[in-house]
Design a protein around this nucleic acid. Structure first.
Length: 567
DNA sequence: CTGGTGCATGGGATG
DNA sequence: ATCCCATGCACCAGT
């Protein structure tokens, strides 16, 4: 960990020490090795990565300074009288001086094709002024053409922005020996309140590092070409998985999108992980947000923590898998271990409430809204993101995940990961197999092997190219068949239920054959598996023991599969 | 009859 | 004590 590797700069917001710290020359800041903290050499107060520091205010993307009045304005999760007003279609204006500022444009998180409905946020003040709003009071949003995105309660966050930063005395410096726990807590806190920011994208798109303009260092990472260097920095922390998603500026228009501190570009070698330290976070320190006065609020908000089991624990492989060969930046959001229900036939993936509310678009109606998700292979799926009331709360689910889960060969115990792919804000669903596949027969059916796909890829960039999207997430070109979505829905059900398999129709067969080569490869047993031939009623079955997919006591009958595929 | 949908329930996690 | 969420189940529509 070295601050010198950072191309960013940060500023100590101790009012006695407002000197800009440019890290590239490694001036002013030094890292407390092993303590995950940084000290300002000038005032000596430590900034501890992994927690909210009341003293230091990193040059985070979430913080902006009005170009006119220079007052810091957080137009993200923080709501205050000094909030920006988001202009349609995306500009923001300082509530203090009314000057129009950064144009969010495509930064609007849910304006991407991820969602079909992405009404622009008309006004930040409308959303922010009222502070946290329980969802029950939230207006109809995506389901109304005139709707506005609502803030998730947890992302509404009040901070006194007028004073810049609260100061803490040395006595209030964090006690680092116990950092580990706090680090986790703060991670979650920041994850939940969106104050942990990388903001690289923000910087890139806004060209504004988020600190006072006059304080912007020459080394501030408000240049796209510097992103890579930033990303490189966060590649050495093995605790990457604990990296905190955070809100980026573009996710502030009513959405609490989350951007992990460990944004990374897979084009950059080797993907190592970092967590501690602003540099370790892969954050340009200038990109990090440390919320002033955050401690008490964070503590309070900490009660809204995302449960640790949902913290993204992405591995390099995960990220590589998701990002592929692109230059995309992955923002791990959260992950969830599939339950039996999730991986079952119902096709409903229960989403952790906090995750759903934090990272998915707000929904006011139980019908929810379609959610476009890209899997690790680049295939697009449409899930219905919805909820139903449950004990004065909500239960969020993704409907229609069965085909995707089967495509990924997931079963109970495996982990699905949700990330955001930048640029574009695509929601990416990855997967990670359980270390030891639990013996589970409940979802044995429909296993088609690695990567088998029973849908035809379409150019989802062209909305006209996919006209049939059923609730099972199936996306099909209309040209492929004249059957209704209901038919496809039924088809997908077949994939789930073996009882339905015999009812597969010709169209289904056609589409299945399209990917038969894939299926063959997937059905092929592992090299170390030796088939035993069993003759049943004159038919030869190649029998393999397939522990991975079917459990130790289950067997995969190739012939059955062949019959299924009409071979 | 089967499968999908919506909701309820209860165990477990969390505060 | 409260909340989350995995799961069960009743109802309904389609076949």
């Amino acid at each position: 960990m070295s601050t010198s590797s950072s191309s960013s700069s940060k500023i100590c917001y101790n009012s006695d020490c407002t000197e800009l710290k440019s890290e590239r020359p490694r001036k002013g800041w030094r890292l407390r090795t092993g303590e995950f903290a940084e000290l300002c050499d000038r005032c000596g107060i430590a900034y501890e990565e992994g927690r909210f520091c009341d003293t230091f205010h990193l040059n985070a993307a979430g913080w902006r300074n009005c170009e006119s009045c220079r007052k810091p304005v957080h137009c993200g999760c923080i709501v205050s009288a000094h909030a920006f007003t988001l202009l349609d279609p995306g500009g923001i204006e300082c509530a203090a001086c009314a000057r129009k500022n950064v144009v969010l444009g495509q930064n609007v998180p849910w304006s991407t094709p991820l969602f079909f409905h992405s009404p622009p946020v008309k006004s930040w003040s409308q959303l922010a002024g009222s502070g946290p709003v329980p969802w029950r009071q939230a207006p109809t949003l995506f389901n109304s053409s005139a709707s506005q995105p609502e803030f998730h309660p947890r992302v509404s966050y009040e901070v006194d922005l007028s004073t810049g930063i609260d100061r803490i005395g040395a006595s209030e410096r964090p006690s680092f020996p116990s950092l580990e726990k706090r680090k986790i807590e703060s991670f979650s806190e920041r994850l939940m309140n969106g104050s942990l920011k990388l903001g690289t994208r923000d910087i890139l798109e806004n060209g504004h590092p988020g600190i006072n303009g006059e304080e912007q260092p020459s080394s501030c990472s408000n240049k796209p070409q510097q992103q890579s260097s930033l990303l490189k920095q966060d590649q050495s922390n093995p605790q990457f998985g604990l990296a905190a998603p955070h809100t980026s500026q573009d996710e502030t228009n009513g959405q609490q999108g989350v951007t992990n501190t460990h944004l990374r570009s897979v084009t950059q070698p080797p993907l190592t992980k970092q967590f501690h330290g602003s540099q370790q976070n892969g954050l340009d320190s200038s990109n990090e947000t440390q919320v002033r006065n955050g401690r008490s609020r964070q503590e309070a908000r900490g009660r809204n923590l995302l449960y640790p089991r949902y913290w993204p624990r992405f591995t390099d492989q995960d990220l590589q898998q998701i990002s592929g060969d692109s230059n995309s930046v992955i923002t791990p959001l959260f992950e969830k271990t599939l339950s039996a229900s999730d991986a079952g036939r119902i096709g409903r993936l229960v989403l952790p409430k906090k995750c759903a509310e934090a990272y998915f678009p707000p929904i006011s109606l139980a019908e929810g809204l379609p959610l476009k998700v890209q899997d690790a292979k680049g295939k697009e799926w449409i899930f219905q993101f919805r909820f139903w009331p449950n004990n004065n709360s909500r239960m969020y689910v993704l409907e229609g995940v069965t085909p995707c889960i089967q495509n990924m060969q997931l079963q109970a115990g495996d982990v699905v990961t949700f990330s955001r792919l930048e640029p574009g804000g695509k929601l990416v669903m990855g997967c990670r197999k359980a270390p030891t596949a639990p013996a589970s027969d409940q979802d044995n059916e429909g296993k088609t092997g690695n990567g088998v796909s029973v849908h035809v890829d379409v150019d989802l960039a062209d909305p006209t190219s996919w006209s049939k999207v059923d609730k099972s997430g199936y996306i099909a070109k209309e040209a492929l068949g004249s059957k209704s979505a209901i038919s496809r829905k039924r088809k997908n059900s077949m994939l789930v239920s073996k009882n339905k398999r015999i009812r597969i129709d010709n169209e289904d067969l056609i589409e299945l054959k399209i990917t038969w080569e894939e299926a063959q490869g997937l059905l092929r047993p592992p090299p170390n598996n030796v088939a035993s031939v069993v003759v049943i009623e004159g038919f030869e079955f190649e029998e393999y023991e397939v522990q991975r997919f079917l459990g130790p006591s289950s067997y995969c009958f190739m012939f059955t599969c062949l019959c299924f595929f009409n071979f």
